[in-house]
Simulated scan of single mutants.
Amino acid sequence: MTYTTVLPIWNATRGRFQKTVEGLPEQDLKLQLGKSTIASLIHHTAEVEYMFAEWFFCKSKSEEIAKPCFTNLAELVDLLSASNEYLLEAMIELPDEDWHKSMESPIGASTPLEAVGRLMYHTGIHAGQISLIQKNGQAK
């Protein structure tokens, strides 16, 4: 399994998340349930994509990732788009034979293929949390 096999699956999952975020009312970014706000979940999702690009696809970001304003939907959408593009660039650069090689990371060993599966799961979890916060959260 390589980039061309993984790409449609990734795009289906990640594209749906992106559309959900793009369709949020900006005032919902402040909604909170427990310690999580919708804005913080969006930011966290982008951060994890950058981390996985580094940990499992050996693509290091040379500059600091700008922290967006957590009340500005356009900035959060831009960050999410940038992290996805960065991850896709990292995936396409990985040689086919490396997709099944286990790599050590701060969260344990995984192959790049397993890492993409973990990212899909991660994105789905946060999509569900955003929906839950919209239904039950309080304005921060």
Rank of each mutant, 00 (worst) to 15 (best):
L80P: 01
L76Y: 07
I42S: 00
L73G: 00
E22T: 09
L88R: 14
L24G: 04
K61Q: 14
Q18A: 12
K19W: 02
T37F: 05
A82R: 11
F52G: 01
L33S: 11
F70K: 10
A39K: 00
Y86F: 12
Q18P: 03
E22M: 09
S83G: 02
L29R: 08
L87T: 12
K19H: 05
Q18E: 08
S60Q: 15
S81A: 13
S60H: 15
S36K: 10
L41G: 05
A82K: 08
I65M: 02
T45D: 13
S40P: 01
L79F: 01
Y50R: 10
R16C: 09
A46V: 12
E22F: 03
E89L: 15
L33F: 10
F56M: 13
L29V: 06
K59C: 14
C69H: 09
K67W: 02
M51S: 10
K30G: 07
D78W: 06
C58E: 15
S60R: 15
L24F: 04
E47F: 12
S83R: 01
D78I: 04
Q27Y: 05
S60G: 14
E54D: 14
L29C: 09
F17R: 00
L29G: 05
E85I: 12
S60T: 15
E64V: 13
A39S: 14
K67S: 07
F52C: 03
S62T: 15
K19G: 06
K59N: 14
E75S: 10
A46I: 09
E75Q: 14
C69E: 13
L31N: 01
F56Q: 07
A39I: 00
H44I: 03
A66S: 12
D78C: 09
A82G: 09
T45W: 01
K19I: 03
N72A: 08
V21W: 00
K19A: 13
G34W: 06
K35T: 11
E49T: 11
E22C: 04
E63P: 04
E49A: 08
T45G: 02
F56R: 06
K30P: 02
E47Q: 12
K61W: 14
V77C: 02
H43Q: 11
K59G: 10
L73T: 03
S36G: 03
E64G: 11
F57M: 12
E63G: 12
E47A: 06
E89W: 14
Q27M: 11
L79N: 00
E63V: 15
R16W: 03
S60D: 14
E64F: 10
S83Y: 00
F52E: 01
G34K: 04
E85Q: 14
A66C: 05
H44M: 03
S81W: 05
S36M: 09
E75D: 13
M51R: 15
L31P: 03
V77P: 00
E75K: 08
Q27D: 09
K61M: 15
E49Y: 12
S62G: 15
S40E: 06
L33Q: 08
Y50N: 08
